[in-house]
Amino acid sequence: MIRFSKVSRQFEVGEERVLALREIDMEIHDGEYAAIMGPSGSGKSTMLNILGLLDRADSGQYHLDDQDTTTLSETKRAALRRRQFGFVFQSFHLVPRMTAAQNVELPLNLDGVSPRERRDRVGAALDSMGLADRANHKPSQLSGGQRQRVAIARATIMKPSVLLADEPTGNLDSKSSKEVIQALETLNLAGITLVVITHDPSIGDRANRKIVMQDGKIDQDITLN
């Protein structure tokens, strides 16, 4: 359960002060599938960064499962990111020198999980993404869709409760886009909270809930049933 109360965030761009988020009030429930839409500069990326604890609000409160995250130390926020959130980026952010399996393994590796358990979990994750035969390929040897599915496997390997995807299909053709969105939706059906940023209406329309942003404010918030 995610709750924003009067969350604001501003940036200084040169002399100018830009209000990226203006006193946002919002709730996202466990297991929801939400798409955040809006033109560039509307504040949707800032919203996602604050949601994923990569960025801090300047004012207001952000409660994650009834815990106020605004007062947490950087180390505690890192721990929350590790356990609660999975990130999927437009440009994949795979480590180029590592194989697909090593990329997926990285979060387990940093967390000190035993090698035996790591091997099992990485194998299962790649399998579920249909990439079992690509385990030892470097990212440069994979197609865009495959890379994004490796990134999704990595984002979910720690069994997070929330999956945050920032334009996950932005660099993909329509066929790969469909595969990636379907992979994300499958995870959502299994219970994970899915928040997708997109400017593509065909992607946004698939979500149960559509949050449209404009000038740092929520313009529309439509939930379909």
């Binding site: 721990a79 929350l80 990111r81 952010h93 990285l106 940093l110």
Partner: peptide, 16 residues
């Protein structure tokens, strides 16, 4: 930098 950003995103603390 992007690799470091990624490490941070997947929850690696500064100390690590």
């Amino acid at each position: 930098k992007t690799e470091i950003g990624l490490l941070k995103a997947i929850g690696s603390p500064g100390r690590q």
